[in-house]
Design a protein around this nucleic acid. Structure first.
Lengths: 226, 226
DNA sequence: TCAATGCTTATTGTCGACAATGGCGCCAGG
DNA sequence: CCTGGCGCCATTGTCGACAATAAGCATTGA
């Protein structure tokens, strides 16, 4: 899932960028906490030069927030932020699903079907839904996004938006409370893609993400009034 | 239109970022040309440190392409790239128009109406469509995007995608050959927003951008076979 | 004559040091 | 006791120098 490249083939700044991003997304560095350049440079064994380049890139991905002459802090997602992101996801992944239904190769469709089978099997055998909820679900969406064959779309979703989604899941340790339903929706989306029904695939994907958003909105209402 | 901030309030790296981005978008630096860090540093009167930070940020916006130990070159958009971008625009700006119809303040709607009136007047008085084609059209779209009140959406469209669109327009010195039609479509979109008809606004915006894409596809077919 | 190899050189990658700005605590005055 | 101003300090912003890599050229051998 992560673009793992040989360390030697990349530059120091690139490596510290990946590692720092991972630490932020996984919550190793607490959201909202202030990070000092000197500290980070020491932590990753790098000088401040490459580190600053990495910071700038993470800043444009909204994983870090910088204030001039004051410091950098890890982004802290609010529920409102997440709702916004899900609105964008609905539009973009709907597009992706439609394009995937039209453009996915037979191999890609087969791979997607196989992945879905694995998820359903895991679901049946043991009710350990942890994997599916945390990363498996994203695997499924990644495949379809890749299947759109639209590099701009892929970059915006996987390269930018999904890091925020993943960070949110770690931040709130979200337990998706509708795994069976989600899995069923995945099945129907795959069926539409297999049938090369672009409109149906788009519709189902939009609905799928829309329901996930509604689910989050309910959680937000339950938590905030307390 | 551009986020013009007092130079003193920002850091050198930020300023060189803005200036470099502008020079790339406007074609002052030829697309596809290789740019040396030393040269750029000299050109903008900065050391290589801040310059590299700016480069990293422009790289993640796909305005620059970097190859390790080889160099950085200005991105050169292909027609295929642009078609991809327009597919994404269709999805995102459709969303924006729908949200704008629901969420725009009365003041924002009034401002949008006034802007449209200016465009129509310019169109009537003299057939100088240059302004409208180059920047006026974008002004209109900017307003609606801002009207969505979705910061993530605004960032993805105005902060990232639109720089590529603008670069394309300069690169191919596009003469939009359907300004009257576009203006008429703008009028209908505004009417839908004024009526707070979100579905209609989304539909009209999607169709508007879809037609612009078809227009580009035709141009591409005319040029490439030669 | 051509190709392969080693060198040269320009460019990028990295680092440590210096300058500048903002926050924080201390002190004095009311 | 509270509040405002002042100065110190930590942190960020910027710079110049050094190291490492890759492309281009010349040279040499077949």
């Amino acid at each position: 899932m992560n673009e793992v490249l040989a360390d030697s083939s990349r530059t120091l700044a690139d490596r510290v960028f990946s590692r720092l991003q991972d630490d932020i997304v996984r919550g190793v560095i607490a959201p909202g906490s202030k990070v000092s350049e000197t500290d980070l440079a020491g932590r990753y064994g790098v000088s401040r030069g490459p580190l600053r380049e990495a910071i700038r890139r993470l800043e444009s991905r909204k994983l870090l927030e910088r204030e001039v002459h004051v410091g950098t802090r890890v982004a802290s997602l609010s529920f409102d932020d997440l709702i916004e992101i899900y609105h964008v996801r609905e539009a973009l992944e709907g597009l992706a699903a439609g394009l995937a239904a039209r453009l996915m190769t037979a191999e890609e469709v087969a791979g997607l079907t196989e992945l879905l089978g694995q998820h359903e099997q895991q679901q049946d055998l043991r009710h350990d839904t942890a994997y599916f909820q945390r990363e498996g679900d994203l695997d499924f969406h990644y495949r379809i996004i890749q299947g759109s064959h639209n590099r701009t779309l892929i970059r915006m979703l996987i390269g930018e938006l999904y890091h925020l989604v993943r960070m949110y899941r770690y931040q709130f340790s979200t337990v998706a409370n509708r795994p069976q339903k989600a899995l069923h929706e995945h099945r129907r989306i795959v069926e539409a893609i297999e049938a090369r029904d672009a409109e149906m695939a788009e519709l189902l994907m939009r609905r799928h993400i829309s329901r996930a958003r509604e689910n989050i909105e309910q959680q937000a209402q339950q938590r905030s009034p307390q």
